[in-house]
Amino acid sequence: MLDATQILQSLVNGMGVGLIYGLVGIGFCVIYNASGIVNFAQGVFVMLGGMFTHTLLTRLGIPIILAAAIAIPLVAAAGVVVEFLIVRPMWNRGATLFAIILATLATQIMIERITILTLGDQPRTLNEFTAGGPLRIGGLAISYQIFWILGCGALLVGLLWLFFGRTRTGRALRACSQNREAAALLGVPVGRMLMIAFALSAALGAVAGILVTPTQYTAFNVGTPFGVYGFIAAIIGGFGSAGGALAGGILLGIFQALAIVTLGAGFKNVAALSMLLVVLLVFPNGLFAGLKGLLAGRSRSADAR
């Protein structure tokens, strides 16, 4: 049965991977808040981040930090291309939510297939950013990469907080999320905000992809799971709240790590998807809002859907 070390170990591992899910989840929220669009191709940015970095690293032989620094803007540019070629024309024509979701899903498959044709279908991985490790504390084994994930993740969250709170663009994005019409009347270029949102969320996905690749692998098809996990993280957090998505991601990561220890690695996805269905059906406003509602003695889940 489980002992304390195993539980601690899964907590640590779950935190690391959960932070990644949280970053992807924030990516969902950034686009959703700016436009009300849900981008099902979010996971593709995670995949592209890892793949671009690996390609730059092996083809040009540059240091990993430099490769990552080049890959992130490239992926952000890919996000802008998706926005400009696919999402914007539909948005301007007043396409339905389902049509846009379907188009982004098709985009994801299209980018995956193009990746197979150009970069190949073999899985690949990156070296850990800091060689050596894992760090051993008692029975725990903590890989150095987890410190990188936690450090970069915390840094990124801090930067996002500053961006949304202190900069003009960040505030304009928040204005869009509260009321697009009013924001447009006040002179916020709503169309450009959508583009910025896609660039930002693609960059977030790329960072997540680069950070997580050393701990597992990357291939053309890792996008779907990361996209779905990020979506679940966003849903747990109440869809739209960046902090909620981050917390939701960490919760999901830990839950998944515990499921791997108790049920086996094969059930990692089943556990996550079941968590999605449970949260959707029981707490449609997000786990935290739902629990708050329960604590306050009134379940709003019935009518607020």
Binding site: L97, F98, I235, L273, S274, L277, L280, L281
Partner: peptide, 16 residues
């Protein structure tokens, strides 16, 4: 469910 929740829930059925 409605909207993107319905979309993701049904998508999850296929994935499961």
């Amino acid at each position: 469910l409605r909207g993107h929740y319905l979309a993701m829930a049904t998508f999850a059925l296929g994935l499961i």
